[in-house]
Simulated scan of single mutants.
Amino acid sequence: MRSNGWAGRVRSPLPAWCRVVDLGGQVALVTGASAGIGRRLTEGLAVRGVTVAGVARGGERLTRAMAEVADVTGGRTLAVPADVTDRAAVEAAMARVQEECGPIDLLVNNAGLVDAAEVSLWEADPDQWWDVVESHVRGALLVSRAVVPTMVARSSGSIVNLASGSGLRARPEYSAYSVAKTGLMRITEALAGSLAGTGVRVFDLAPGVVETDMTRSMAMWRGKTDWTDPDLVVRWVVAIAEGQLDQWSGRFLHAAADNVDVLARVDGLNDDARRLRLCEWGPEDTFRR
């Protein structure tokens, strides 16, 4: 790896899960890129010709991961260590990515923590609880605000926020994660509304339950064997990057439950489709939005 963080080596063969679609010329930024879903996304994008900048807190682990991706795919990667909750660090990182890679076409807000223990809200450590919320919500806020202006200026760009079913329905034992993912979904809808007509689109994408260090650490998944194939998540992000799902901007997609080809053909969505809404309790409910 060169001292500036770039990697671009070649090794074969490519992983069997890769379905190669040429996205050459695009630049992607993936947060939480050193492991898990983020690491798999960097590889899935790089093998399709995307220049991929990876962001994560641990510089050594991130640099190693981006070098491995370059080795496997022959793609161009850039390791940019930064804490997504640190405003100055994020702004410096985004400036570096855009200077060395060019304008960002695709942003994937994937970084985020999970509750340290399966306990009720009042039993949780308040500092760790808040760290979880900040990692998802403040992280997505800071990275998005640093990237969106250039996308708007170019009238083009896609943002994918890694959502979760926990954002739709609270899990008492993972209250911080549930609050964080619900907040992230509101960021998606707010962004999509403000970006209407600009050519920039924003999506919530729930990956399903992919086997990662984080999911293996969660007691609720102990003994699980039917994990979601991470290549499904790659396929959805690629479809978004290709513009197949533009009509779903501001809405919730699920990599394991939905079908890309089906959703790509959907037209005429109503305002509430796949968005967080309060349901009426019955015909006599007097509250209306």
Rank of each mutant, 00 (worst) to 15 (best):
P172K: 10
L29N: 05
E173W: 07
R48T: 02
A176V: 04
P13Y: 03
V47H: 00
N259D: 15
F252E: 02
D229Q: 08
R64T: 13
R138V: 14
G5N: 01
L232Q: 13
W221A: 13
G59H: 03
P207G: 10
V97L: 07
R145Q: 15
L62Q: 06
T228P: 06
L253Q: 05
R216M: 12
S144H: 01
I104V: 15
A92F: 03
A65E: 08
G167N: 01
D246I: 05
G167K: 00
T188V: 12
E242S: 09
A7G: 14
A53T: 12
T188L: 01
S249N: 10
L184M: 06
T228D: 07
L141E: 11
W221H: 15
R138F: 05
D131S: 15
S12E: 13
L121Y: 06
E123D: 15
V238F: 01
A116Y: 03
S217Y: 05
L195G: 11
V260I: 15
A219L: 13
S144N: 06
E91P: 03
A153F: 00
G58M: 04
R288A: 14
Q98T: 15
R222W: 02
V119L: 12
D272L: 10
L106I: 14
F203P: 00
M1Y: 04
G54L: 04
V200K: 06
V30G: 05
S156M: 05
A206W: 00
I104L: 09
A257F: 11
G193Y: 04
R57F: 05
R288Y: 06
S217N: 10
S12P: 09
L141F: 14
W122A: 12
E91C: 08
V209L: 05
D246H: 05
G197D: 09
S175E: 00
T225D: 14
A264H: 03
E68S: 13
L142I: 09
D86F: 02
S166D: 11
Q98A: 07
E134T: 09
D204S: 14
A46N: 05
A206Q: 03
R275V: 13
M185F: 02
P149T: 10
R2S: 13
D213C: 09
S217M: 05
I37Q: 03
R169I: 04
V90D: 06
G58A: 10
T150E: 14
A264L: 02
T225V: 15
D285L: 13
V262H: 10
H254I: 05
S135F: 00
R201F: 07
D105E: 09
D258G: 08
L142E: 02
V108A: 07
E100N: 10
A79K: 03
R274L: 13
V179M: 11
K224V: 12
L113F: 01
V90L: 03
P207D: 10
V234R: 01
A153S: 12
R19Q: 13
D105V: 11
M220P: 02
K181I: 05
R154K: 14
G223D: 15
W227T: 13
R288W: 06
E43A: 12
D231Q: 14
A7P: 01
D231Y: 02
G54R: 02
V20S: 11
T85I: 06
A196S: 14
R57I: 08
R76K: 11
R57D: 09
F252Y: 12
G32S: 10
G157R: 06
